[in-house]
């Protein structure tokens, strides 16, 4: 029974300094929906828990310029969901985030926490990658920015080093005629974990795709940006032949495991199916259907 200290940091500096000093034995606490469960079940035994919800910047949703958002790392799902403009611009991110846990969990869980937990199956991560979102990180040497697709190193592992903390998520300025979508496969309709997750984000001009990003979760040790699949969509009208090709590239990019949640064969097939379905949803959203 090691004792755990609790610190409610008021500033980024205070949090980062405390974490740095703890030399790897500290954990940041946002909503706690992963961390507290891990502590209770004995998977993680931090000596110091640093609560970051009281740091204003981390708990703020900011529209820095028109249609350009920065979301603090500990903003809860319920709060983000109440921001009408953000939900309108990023319906795919919101629908992914909304899938995390129940209504009660939504009151606590944060986008930042979902990202830092490092699960290959984290629901919001493929949507964030597809969105082209950037992680803003504070550390002993100041702030730095990392695209979300480079944030994960492996299951449970991120680029964050001792003393580094995720501060916020910077979304690109939203172009008109753009939308996103996220679909996941789970055996249950709710309260489940993704067997495969797929996020897409596209821009259409006169029915021609001018920008596209496709991301898959739970099919590899980290969530993936499928660059080649994204690229071949650009300049096309996203007809069913193109989507078949995109789906095949997604299937090729899969490197899943066999486990109790799904087989390699099944996960790979599902990735292709979800890709096609989520692109169609994003197109519908752009067309206002």
């Amino acid at each position: 029974m090691s004792e755990t200290q609790y610190l409610a940091a008021k500033t980024i500096d205070e949090a980062v300094t405390a974490h740095s000093k703890a030399n790897g034995s500290a954990r940041f606490l946002a909503g706690g929906t992963d961390l507290l469960v891990q502590i209770k079940s004995g998977i993680k035994k931090p000596k110091l828990v640093i609560d970051i919800k009281k740091i204003v910047e981390l708990n703020t949703i900011k529209e820095v310029s028109d249609n350009e958002f920065v979301v603090g790392a500990s903003v809860s799902g319920a709060n983000l969901n109440r921001n009408n403009k953000f939900t309108k611009l990023w319906p795919g991110v919101i629908e992914a985030f909304r899938l995390i846990g129940s209504e009660q969990i939504q009151g606590r869980a944060s986008l930042g926490g979902n990202l830092c937990n490092g699960s290959p199956a984290g629901d919001s991560v493929p949507a964030l990658i597809a969105a082209g979102c950037i992680a803003i990180i504070a550390g002993p040497d100041g702030k730095k920015e990392i695209p979300i697709e480079n944030f994960h190193k492996g299951p449970g592992k991120t680029v964050l080093e001792n003393g580094e903390m995720l501060v916020s998520l910077k979304f690109p300025k939203r172009e008109i005629n753009s939308s996103d979508a996220y679909l996941r496969m789970t055996p249950r309709t709710e309260m489940d974990i993704a067997v495969v997750g797929c996020g897409v984000n596209i821009t259409l001009e006169n029915n021609v795709c001018t920008a596209a990003r496709v991301s898959l979760g739970a099919v590899a040790p980290t969530p993936l940006l499928i660059k080649d699949a994204s690229d071949i969509m650009i300049g096309t009208d996203l007809n069913s032949d193109i989507l078949d090709k995109v789906a095949n590239l997604c299937i090729k990019a899969c490197n899943p495991i066999n486990d109790k949640r799904g087989t390699i064969d099944y996960r790979t097939k599902v990735a292709g199916v979800l890709l096609k379905r989520s692109v169609l949803i994003a197109i519908d959203r752009i067309k206002g259907n």
Partner: peptide, 24 residues
């Protein structure tokens, strides 16, 4: 009930022991 190769029950919680939820 899913057992792993070591003869251990591999799904001991309601996340992976999938009882239907209301929306199912």
């Amino acid at each position: 009930y899913i057992y792993n190769k070591d003869g251990h029950l591999d799904n001991t919680g309601f996340l992976d022991y999938r009882m239907p939820v209301c929306s199912d």
